[in-house]
């Protein structure tokens, strides 16, 4: 017990406060591919928008309509896309080709298996 407390004190003394703060934020879950999305998006319903919109309640929604407090590009709003496994697969493979004029700056996820795993995770996470 004492040893643990000492070790803890040593760690506290050695690490800058901000480092501790950063580490106390539990790493976000998700497949590795989500590491490329999470600077721009949150997935759980009710979380804040970032540069990209929050993706809560994504499945079954019309593209560019989910969040009233987010400014989507005219291109995405006019795309007529309804989000499901198939439309998401095309979008994530190449957003610019799927919706020319989109503001999502993402080159695309080339690996179909990674897309599949990401979409499956999104389906659960964005419920």
């Amino acid at each position: 017990m004492n040893r643990l407390r000492l070790a803890l004190a040593a760690v506290l003394a050695a690490s800058p406060v901000s480092a501790l703060l950063a580490q106390s934020q539990a790493p976000q879950p998700g497949p590795r591919a989500w590491l490329q999305c999470r600077a721009c998006h949150t997935a759980k319903t009710g979380e804040a928008n970032k540069v990209g919109p929050n993706l809560g309640k994504l499945f079954g929604a019309k593209a560019g309509t989910l969040r009233a407090n987010y400014t989507y590009s005219p291109a995405l709003k006019a795309s007529g896309i309804v989000w499901n496994d198939k439309t998401l697969d095309a979008w994530l493979a190449n957003p610019a080709l799927t919706v020319p004029g989109t503001r999502m700056a993402y080159p695309g996820l080339a690996n179909p298996a990674e897309r599949k795993a990401l979409i499956a995770w999104l389906r659960k996470e964005t419920r």
């Binding site: 901000s18 703060l21 950063a22 934020q25 999470r38 600077a39 721009c40 970032k50 540069v51 990209g52 503001r103 700056a105």
Partner: peptide, 14 residues
């Protein structure tokens, strides 16, 4: 405003 990753790190670290 579109500097997503830079803004995200600024936000993460306050």
């Amino acid at each position: 405003p579109g500097y997503a990753r830079l803004l995200d790190r600024a936000g993460q670290f306050g």
